[in-house]
Simulated assay, not measured.
Amino acid sequence: MHHEVRGVVSRKAGAPVEVLDILVPDPGPGEALVAVQACGVCHTDLHYREGGIGDEFPYLLGHEAAGVVEAVGPGVTDVEPGDFVVLNWRAVCGRCRSCRRGRPQYCFDTRNAEQPMTLTDGTPLSPALGIGAFAEKTLVAAGQCTKVDPESDPAVVGLLGCGVMAGIGAAVNTAPVQRGDTVAVIGCGGVGSAAIAGADLAGARRVIAVDVDPRKLEWAERFGATDLVNARHADPVEAIRALTDGVGADVVIDAVGRPETFRQAFYARDLAGTAVLVGVPTPDMELNLPLIDVFSRGGAVKSSWYGDCLPSRDFPVLVELHQQGRIDLDAFVTERIALDDVEAAFDRMHRGEVLRSVVVL
């Protein structure tokens, strides 16, 4: 049996998205059918629409989502119909070399649903990050469902499915920020603001926010930034050093993902400090650093995959911290919109007017 629902589809690179009828099959072995309640509009979806991630059009967009499990396929034991879940795009396999070594957050064989969702004419859809949640229902691997408190607001906790988790995890898991550290975050959109919140949660004594947009710097202050640097008016490296007794920050997180911003992160850290790349570059970007500088400055240069998170471990904890008032996830939701408003939301995101637009179904 197939379920006919509405979904946001990108047919070709650079073209506006369309809201179309799609077919979602009943779950097969290891799969779950989820009634989507809310899904954030993430920059990764715009990358898909622009052809910056792949060319497997048409894409079913959307991946920062929460909803209720409607049905499960054979062999599924971790979730059942009625469970409230946040979706994730790294369902660990439990069998690859990383999982066997006790590092499931780096799983090299993550799972997605095997059956395709399609257009009504049978054309297979490529779901964004294996999820495709700009739809009334979606089909995922059961391991992509993480149960959290059902009293949670889907529009808020669904954002843990990508950007908010990526930022918080870059600070808490990848770096990791230690109590008393100085931290700088370059780029204060959704991911950068989450990194600031994560650094604050971890006990950083100083959190320096860097951006070219005064509006984003205001957001950063709301999430715990102690110092603000407008990179249009000051050199970020020199400004960060000036705020850290001339030595640089213990941790610098690049939430933009461009060669120039990563160079800033590399040189703005203290000797033996840590630079973390969590912003997603495009395939054409290249980084040129003097190898002697990589050697002589010591420390660590890290990339952060999804905030190095383990959804089953991290999502419930962050939801609980939010409910305790220790991290303000509500502040990431700028607006709540309908499926038909996704294209306009992309424009607002591109102009830097929102942290997150969230589709509510």
Rank of each mutant, 00 (worst) to 15 (best):
Ala142Phe: 00
Val140Ser: 11
Phe223Cys: 14
Glu238Leu: 09
Gly169Asp: 08
Lys216Gly: 14
Arg215Glu: 14
Pro236Val: 05
Ser193Gln: 13
Glu238Cys: 05
Arg179Gly: 03
Ala171Asp: 04
Ala141Met: 01
Val247Ile: 04
Ile196Ala: 07
Val191Ala: 03
Ala202Leu: 12
Val156Ile: 06
Ser152Pro: 02
Lys137Ser: 05
Gly203Tyr: 07
Leu160Gly: 07
Lys147Phe: 00
Leu159Asn: 10
Glu151Leu: 06
Glu221Phe: 03
Asp200Met: 11
Asp235Ala: 04
Gly161Asp: 09
Ala199His: 09
Gly161Leu: 00
Ala249Glu: 06
Ala231Ser: 15
Ala204Thr: 07
Leu217Phe: 10
Thr174Gln: 08
Val156Gly: 06
Ala225Lys: 09
Gln144Met: 06
Val247Ser: 02
Glu221Trp: 11
Ala225Asn: 13
Ile208Arg: 11
Gly224Ile: 08
Ala231Thr: 14
Val177Asp: 02
Gly161Arg: 09
Asp211Thr: 00
Arg222Leu: 12
Ala166Arg: 05
Ala209Ile: 07
Glu238Pro: 00
Val140Ala: 08
Ala170Trp: 04
His233Arg: 14
Asp153Gly: 05
Ala209Arg: 04
Ala220Val: 02
Ala141Asp: 15
Ala184Gly: 15
Val229Gln: 11
Val191Ser: 04
Arg179Ile: 13
Val229Cys: 12
Thr182Ala: 09
Asp213Phe: 03
Gln144Tyr: 01
Ile240Val: 15
Leu160Ala: 07
Ser152His: 05
Cys188Asn: 14
Val185Met: 06
Ile186Met: 10
His233Glu: 15
Arg215Lys: 15
Val172Ile: 14
Asp245Ser: 12
Ala209Met: 07
Ile208Gln: 10
Ala184Pro: 12
Ala141Asn: 15
Ser193Asp: 10
Thr174Asp: 09
Pro214His: 07
Leu139Met: 03
Pro150His: 00
Ile240Lys: 05
Ala249Leu: 06
Val157Asn: 07
Val157Arg: 03
Thr146Gln: 03
Pro236Asp: 13
Asn173Pro: 12
Ala242Leu: 04
Val140Tyr: 07
Glu151Ala: 13
Pro214Ile: 00
Pro150Tyr: 01
Leu217Trp: 05
Asp235Gln: 05
Gly224Arg: 13
Ala204Glu: 08
Ala142Val: 00
Val207Trp: 07
Cys145Trp: 02
Gly167Thr: 12
Val148Tyr: 01
Val237Glu: 15
Glu218Met: 06
Leu159Ala: 09
Leu139Val: 01
Pro150Thr: 06
Val207Gly: 02
Ser193Tyr: 01
Cys145Lys: 08
Ile186Glu: 10
Glu218Ser: 13
Met165Cys: 09
Pro176Ile: 04
Val164Gln: 02
Val183Asn: 08
Leu139Ile: 02
Lys137Pro: 00
Asp200Asn: 14
Ser152Gly: 03
Pro236Gln: 14
Gly190Arg: 11
Phe223Trp: 14
Ala195Glu: 09
Cys162Tyr: 03
Gly189Thr: 01
Val183Gln: 07
Ile196Tyr: 13
Cys162His: 08
